[in-house]
Design a protein around this nucleic acid. Structure first.
Lengths: 205, 205
DNA sequence: CGCTTGTGGTTACAGTTGTTCACTGACTCC
DNA sequence: GGAGTCAGTGAACAACTGTAACCACAAGCG
């Protein structure tokens, strides 16, 4: 029952999206804490004061960017972990999926990796919250697998967090690697994941 | 053959160190790419133009900070890995060492974690280079251990990189955790390391 | 000693920043 | 159809930025 929202609201959303896009592009070569409000409005092509109609501050814009960059990622994460096949096949598929996502949304990944430890507290919190949700979701998927028999909740969450952190680091490494190094990066990432999975298999006893 | 350097040079080094200290302190709540030259000189208590006598730009200052923060860390890394005792004892000691280092040099860790993926290319490179050196050193230590029999150089480097990344992430997590959460962070970090070590033990065959 | 060197200070410039205020004019709703 | 709402405008503000030119004066060195 979503009624079409009026011309007015639609145009506002469009401008808001333009802000997000412009900011994301400007953030490829700087951090959020140095992103100026005027810089963004200039890139969008609107007056500086128009910014306030959409965000209180650039920090607020950053939080919105976190939603955009990570909010849509939950299905992919779950799909990655619950894929069919044996452990090695699953890992290969996960690494390939990460590589593809980085290729398609490089600015998103760059933003998250950069601001995860960045200078803006609210954005750091927003990212931490999303990452915690990822870890919870991965944990839920892991719990379904037979390999997790006998595992405590705590240990499962520990493992899930390790996987999630590893995924983001892999993505960030893809980002900085030259095209001809991508394969090498993928191979190392695969072996890291494989080692962790081996550790998982022998964790108990 | 180190002759005492003149009063002149000594005073210059002192001022330079004041710049580094002031910058590090200012960077606790912002990123390097938003750090202004005037901001730093104001904090030090010198004229803006004095900055140029020591650094070309704030990016240059950042590179110097990388040296200060990571340059002195090499002995600790090596010591951590080559410590005596069985695997679990070694891990406990490593985590404790990391916790202590974070407690003693929080600003250093914050800076490295923040700028590792930060908006200043030269600084990112400087950090990446030091981290690669750490990985090489850890690899060399690992190679000495009997558990590494039969391991290829490539796999050893992969494992070393995994350990190094894990150490920095642990340090950064300590940094953001409240005092009463420190123990919990330490316990999770310990279990992560332990799982990796188990993976290592069963990597071959 | 006097000459050179170079750290740091002073003044000034042209641009930029965030934020305010009063405004326009197209959309919305009764 | 007329009144009200509100996204976006334009001008103005004080404060800030990096950088240039020139100066002061203590240290180094023949």
């Amino acid at each position: 029952m979503s009624h079409t929202l009026g011309i007015r609201q639609a145009q506002k959303q469009k401008t808001r999206q333009a802000f997000l896009d412009a900011a994301l592009s400007l953030l490829e070569e700087q951090s959020l804490s140095s992103l100026g409000l005027r810089e963004v409005t200039r890139a969008v092509g609107v007056a500086p004061t128009a910014f306030y109609r959409h965000f209180h501050s650039t920090a607020d814009l950053g939080v919105a960017l976190v939603e955009e960059a990570l909010g849509s990622l939950h299905p992919m994460i779950a799909g990655t972990v619950s894929a069919a096949g044996d452990s090695d096949e699953r890992i290969d598929r996960a690494v390939a999926l990460i590589a593809r996502h980085v290729r398609e949304h490089p600015a998103h990944i760059r933003f998250i990796a950069r601001e995860r430890n960045g200078g803006v507290q609210k954005v750091r919190s927003a990212i931490a919250e999303q990452m915690a949700r990822f870890a919870d979701e991965v944990k839920a998927e892991l719990a379904k697998q037979p390999e997790s028999a006998g595992w405590s909740d705590d240990d499962l969450l520990m493992l899930a967090g390790l996987y999630v952190d590893q995924m983001l680091m892999t993505a960030s490494t893809f980002l900085e690697a030259a095209p001809e190094e991508q394969d090498q990066v993928a191979r190392v990432a695969t072996r890291r994941m494989r080692l962790i999975s081996i550790g998982r298999r022998h964790w108990l006893g």
